[in-house]
């Protein structure tokens, strides 16, 4: 029951994110737009390239979707609305997000196309850049909660939300989550106008529909993770817990889409240089500051 509820919530979230993205992209707000786009995609022929690695070609979109759903499985929408409240939840979400990389590598290698291949390997470089910026801010969050349980992490923020307690970690995690979902300005693996769609280039029809759905769910999952780790999850006055979660998740998704819309695409070398020379020292500083705060103030 809980599982069904959360998965339908994810789908609704993904749909709304798709509406938002279309609104940002072509300036028209149409609530039924993604629905027709999906129908059109499903109606089209799903072409298989001439010499694909069939196994990877078929698995990649599904794996992307599964990884995104698994990431959301450990995040609570309300005190009881959580699929699996694992004792290692904050670590598990990293594990689930790591399989986004595997899915994109498969999608890059599978169709045997040059643009897709470049897109897939680019994402590997991107992962090496951002992965530390996902793990280290979460470490600081877990330090404050003294637990890896995501519900405990939310409860630890009942006084002050983590966005106030550790703003540096929030900024780093937010940037990293943009990179995980390969949203602009970090859309290196898809890179419209440069790689002609990159990893998506060879996908058409129903497979592309699954791929797009996976990415939308991934955005929602990351927004949910940001909400749980930094914005106090379901906490808030008046409204019921699930409503607070929904509002916050939608707000974070909108922010993720909006910010990327205003920035130019980052170059791979720049991304690596910034993440390693600036991001990781800042993440370490964040851990240090949080450690001091936990010791002297709580």
């Amino acid at each position: 029951m809980t599982t069904l509820l959360i998965i339908s919530a994810l789908l609704v979230g993904a749909y709304l994110v798709a509406v938002l993205e279309a609104w940002l992209a072509n300036g028209r707000f149409r609530l039924t737009g993604p629905l027709w786009a999906t129908v059109a995609l499903l109606g089209r022929e799903s072409i298989v390239p001439r010499t694909p690695d069939r196994l990877f070609f078929e698995t990649a979109p599904v794996l992307l979707l599964v990884a995104a759903v698994l990431a959301a499985a450990v995040l609570p929408l309300s005190p009881s609305l959580i699929i699996a409240n694992m004792a290692t939840g904050a670590l598990f979400i990293n594990a689930a997000l790591a399989y986004v990389l595997v899915a994109l590598l498969m999608a890059g290698w599978g169709p045997d196309g040059a643009y897709a291949l470049i897109g897939g390997w680019r994402f590997l470089g991107q992962v090496i850049a951002y992965s530390m910026l996902v793990v280290m801010p979460i470490t600081a969050v877990a330090m404050r909660a003294e637990s890896l349980l995501t519900t405990d992490i939310v409860l630890s923020q009942s006084g002050v939300w983590n966005i106030v307690y550790q703003p540096l970690g929030f900024v780093l995690f937010f940037v990293a989550s943009l990179a995980v979902a390969f949203l602009p300005p970090f859309d290196l693996p898809t890179a419209g106008g440069e790689l002609a769609g990159g990893v998506e280039a060879e996908y058409t029809g129903s497979r592309l529909a699954v791929f797009r759905l996976g990415r939308m769910v991934l955005i929602v999952s990351l927004a949910a993770a940001t909400t749980v780790f930094y914005l106090g999850g379901w906490l808030g006055p008046v409204l019921p817990p699930w409503a607070w979660s929904a509002v916050k998740i939608l707000a974070v998704s909108a922010a993720m889409l909006l910010i990327g819309h205003t920035l130019p695409r980052v170059r791979e070398t720049q991304l690596l240089a910034w993440c390693w020379k600036l991001g990781i020292p800042l993440a370490l500083l964040n851990i240090f500051i949080v450690g001091v705060l936990v010791l002297i103030w709580l």
């Binding site: 694992m86 004792a87 290692t88 670590l91 598990f92 990293n94 594990a95 790591a98 399989y99 990389l101 595997v102 590598l105 390997w121 590997l124 992962v127 090496i128 992965s131």
Partner: peptide
């Protein structure tokens, strides 16, 4: 053995992808 299991799943995804390239 939950912690080690999740750790193994997480570490190997990145490690083996790097191996692939």
């Amino acid at each position: 053995v939950e912690f080690l299991g999740v750790l193994q799943i997480m570490m190997m995804a990145t490690e083996m992808s790097i191996m692939a390239i």
